[in-house]
Design a protein around this nucleic acid. Structure first.
Lengths: 123, 123
DNA sequence: TATCGTTATATATTTGAAAATATAACGAGC
DNA sequence: GCTCGTTATATTTTCAAATATATAACGATA
């Protein structure tokens, strides 16, 4: 009789089931933990540029994430404004705010899944 | 009233929730899709070396994965034999086979989770 | 004891993704 | 029309991760 998994892996240090979630279109990922944080920081700071700085991301990468993200939505989740008062900035649309809300709820359900699976590994 | 998520993302091409799962110890991953495939190939081919070739992985990386994996188990999941008939080889222990079985079952439950979440995104 | 292809390990090389850098366009407010 | 800091974009540089290469040890079999 083969041992079940909980007798195979070490108990100390504790072993957990970890994971990552994202949204994808045609196998290409366009939203996950990184873009979530970026959206939140854009909301906080008012610009892609400042948001990128705040999370130690290059502006280029941040801009590409936002650009790609916008292309997957019916209408943009971030609206850029080049030029203008203080040089411009970017704002989240209601759709952007809803996306944040959705992903956080999804993440919570995933957390529960991972916790349940990690419990299974224990005696 | 804000739109719900299903009115925000494009319907075509279809958008799905994707993800990845692994086993971790102290935040360090030691088992996931790659090691799973490697174990299966070791079972098929009889050696780490051949298994690595079969999946286009360098021997070094394969050896490190196996070494790390063994260190997380109470007793080894792969037993190496350097030297001997045909130069040696490696065999999976019953624990190794059980680990494959466990991970595949876990992956199936995760697949269900992802499918349910992807359904939510549709009308 | 000679052979075989493997395990085990160290070092050198490649390479590809990320970051850094540079530059132009933008447009409200002064 | 000048200034500001942003968006937008191209190019260069960096760096870490992966691969490639090299070498020794292993041990059953013949």
């Amino acid at each position: 009789m083969a041992k079940s998994i909980k007798y195979i892996l070490k108990k100390d240090p504790e072993i957990k089931v970890g994971g990552k979630l994202w949204l994808e279109s045609e196998g290409e990922r366009f939203f996950g933990p990184g873009p979530l944080e970026l959206l939140e920081k854009i909301e906080d700071t008012g610009s892609i540029s400042n948001a990128a700085k705040a999370m130690n991301m290059s502006y280029k990468k941040a801009w590409e994430l936002i650009n790609h993200l916008n292309s997957q939505a019916v209408s943009p989740v971030v609206v850029p404004q080049a030029g203008g008062e203080k040089g411009g900035g970017s704002i989240l649309t209601p759709e952007g705010l809803e996306l944040i809300k959705y992903y956080k709820a999804l993440r919570k359900r995933f957390k529960t899944f991972l916790e349940n699976e990690s419990e299974r590994l224990k005696k």
